[in-house]
Simulated scan of single mutants.
Amino acid sequence: MEFYIGWSHSDAIFCDYFPQCPVLISAIPDNRGGVKRYKNKPSKLILDCGSVFYVKQKVRPPLKDVFDIQLSLLEDCEKEAIVRMVHFDEPLLNKFSLSERYMAIERTLFNAYEYFNIFHKCNLPKSVQPMGVIQGYDQASIEFSAYELIKMGYTKFGIGSLLFKHQTQQIEMIRRAADVVGPSNLHVFGVTGIPQLSAMVDIGVSSFDSTRPTMAAAFFQVFYSRPFRTFFLSESRAKPTSPRLENPLHCECPVCENDARQILVPSPREYMKLRSIHNYYHLLRTFNDILENKKRRSEHVVSNVLRTGN
């Protein structure tokens, strides 16, 4: 299971600090040419369609225009990079009635069919594959969406529209999608709560992405791990009872090893970027700890079975 950091043109370049860092980039106009700024090009990349961005615009671009932005980002990547290109979907955000949700799912599937055809006409390298987006508002609609994508020929999938749902419902929907398409073929968009991460590790999904380190840094929040916890800078407008950080704690991230006081400087943006690097380090560390604990549990179960057999 892998952690893809969500990246946009104004964010810190995480690969410059963590060369093996998988990255998700949305195909929006401002991100064109962004990969050219990387000192270390990502070896694994998801080129998202940017639907959450476009759904807030007055006019949606044609699917082909979004695909062209994805191709421009792909051209700036290393030829050996493993890339997943996400078709243009219709998020269920702000879709409240049953008819609105159904129409969004239908539009997503129509776009998936059109995208699949456009993608295969380009004769891209085998290391570049299309990713179908599973949209649904309950387990039945998730199952329907997933099976339709399989019929079209998709073999890699992502599940979306999980934001603003309770963590129990998120886990149930992820599990149902994994049951249909296989957990090793499933990416989870934008779910990063610690209980959800633990559940996704147990389910065995392929990957997930997050912009949480950057978003938290922008709102004057600092992560630490072992155990995972969040502190607010003194300048934050969070509730007075929220935990504050006056002095940095011990940390071995690339930023703190240079000067730990930098993560406590609220602005300008360059300090926010450094804070996001620090936050990424601790969220990644927490995720890796969850993976390691899962591995240990599995080894313990195997050893118990062997002892029982003797």
Rank of each mutant, 00 (worst) to 15 (best):
E143T: 13
P19A: 03
K39H: 11
R37W: 08
P227K: 03
Y102R: 12
P130H: 09
V305T: 15
T168P: 14
Q221T: 06
E235T: 05
R229D: 03
S72W: 09
A178M: 03
F116K: 15
S210K: 00
E78I: 12
V305Y: 07
P213F: 00
Q196V: 11
E90Y: 11
H9K: 12
M272I: 10
S303V: 04
S210H: 00
Q221V: 02
H282T: 01
P125N: 08
P227R: 01
A216T: 03
G6W: 03
D11K: 14
G204W: 03
L24W: 04
V201G: 00
V265F: 02
A12K: 02
R226H: 10
V133R: 05
A218R: 15
A260T: 06
K79D: 11
P22F: 02
Y154L: 08
N111H: 08
G204S: 01
R237I: 12
E257T: 13
L274N: 07
N40I: 05
F223E: 04
F110K: 14
F189N: 01
N288D: 15
F164W: 13
F228P: 02
N258T: 12
I194G: 11
P213K: 00
P266Y: 05
T192F: 05
N40H: 07
P213C: 01
K295Q: 02
I159H: 07
E235A: 07
P227T: 00
E78N: 12
Q169L: 10
Y102D: 15
R229K: 05
V66L: 15
P62F: 14
T214V: 06
L274F: 09
K41I: 09
V305D: 13
I105K: 11
T192G: 10
D16Q: 00
V301M: 04
Y113C: 15
N123G: 12
V201W: 00
F116P: 12
N185S: 07
K294A: 15
L124F: 07
V55A: 14
H250R: 14
E257H: 15
Q167L: 08
N123C: 11
F67Q: 10
P22T: 01
P213G: 03
I159R: 07
Y147V: 14
I25M: 10
D16N: 02
S225Q: 02
K64Q: 12
A177N: 09
K151R: 13
C21N: 09
R237G: 14
P29S: 04
I159A: 10
F144A: 12
T192E: 10
S8Y: 13
